[in-house]
């Protein structure tokens, strides 16, 4: 049997993950409503001061995404564990690294879609305006979701086989994501508030290096995480 190439198997596994998400639409829906609920809660916790809420909108968006990501990552590995499908995948002569790439990209796509979905809500609810371009907003959302997904997938694979996994995943993930959260929230705030001192590129650079580092690390380390 010919061993499929890294990219080919990644592609197949990626579609498998997306198909799974699509078939279990109820889960995705729950995720959407969870993130909406968090946005509402942030607003209620701070009171109806529109100016304040608008100024903090970037932070709320990323906190909502971060909290949802823990649920999404936990779910995506719960499915694998309950069906022992990671063990099944290991029986197939497939490069384990493609499991990481496929799962990571699928998680990033799911989160990015959630992020884009939340933007109109922010506009309606918090009176946010897109001062810079939509392109920059999409860039920062994409880079930020990639930043959550790479270490998230690695830790999700680890935590799903540990005891107390629901506590463990955020405990492992949140501290190391702080730089990504800072960069993504600041970048998003600049998109909403305007960028008179052109700080946007430096936050993109910070987020980009975070992405490069953790996608590289995950690519190298993931086979060790799932090995027997």
């Amino acid at each position: 049997m010919r061993r499929p190439g890294l990219l080919a198997s990644t592609w197949v596994l990626f579609w498998k993950d997306l198909l799974l998400e699509w078939r279990s639409r109820a889960r995705v829906n729950a995720l959407v409503f969870f993130s909406l609920a968090t946005l509402l809660l942030f607003s209620f916790a701070l009171g109806p001061d529109t100016a304040l809420l608008r100024r903090n909108a970037g932070g709320y968006l990323w906190l909502a995404l971060l909290l949802s990501s823990v649920l999404a990552l936990g779910e995506s590995f719960r499915v694998e564990r309950e069906n022992s499908s990671l063990e099944g995948l290991r029986l197939v002569p497939v490069d384990t690294r493609s499991i990481f790439l496929a799962k990571g990209i699928a998680n990033a796509v799911l989160l990015a879609a959630l992020g884009v979905l939340l933007v109109p809500v922010l506009v309606a609810l918090l009176d946010v305006r897109i001062v810079l371009s939509w392109g920059r907003l999409v860039t920062i959302i994409a880079l930020g979701c990639l930043a959550i997904a790479a270490p998230g997938t690695l830790y999700g694979a680890i935590a799903s086989h540990a005891r107390a996994r629901d506590v463990l995943l955020p405990l492992l993930l949140f501290p190391i994501l702080i730089p990504a959260l800072v960069a993504a929230a600041k970048g998003t705030a600049l998109v909403f508030e305007g960028d008179p001192m052109t700080q946007f590129p430096s936050w993109i650079a910070l987020l980009g290096s975070f992405d490069l580092l953790y996608w590289g690390l995950g690519f190298v380390l993931f086979p060790r995480v799932v090995e027997e």
Binding site: I158, A159, A162, R163, A164, R165, V167, L168, L171, L172, F174, P175, I176
Partner: peptide
């Protein structure tokens, strides 16, 4: 906080 997570992982 990160090392607290590390120690928790070792325990779990």
């Amino acid at each position: 906080v990160a090392y607290a997570g590390y120690m928790a992982l070792r325990r779990f």
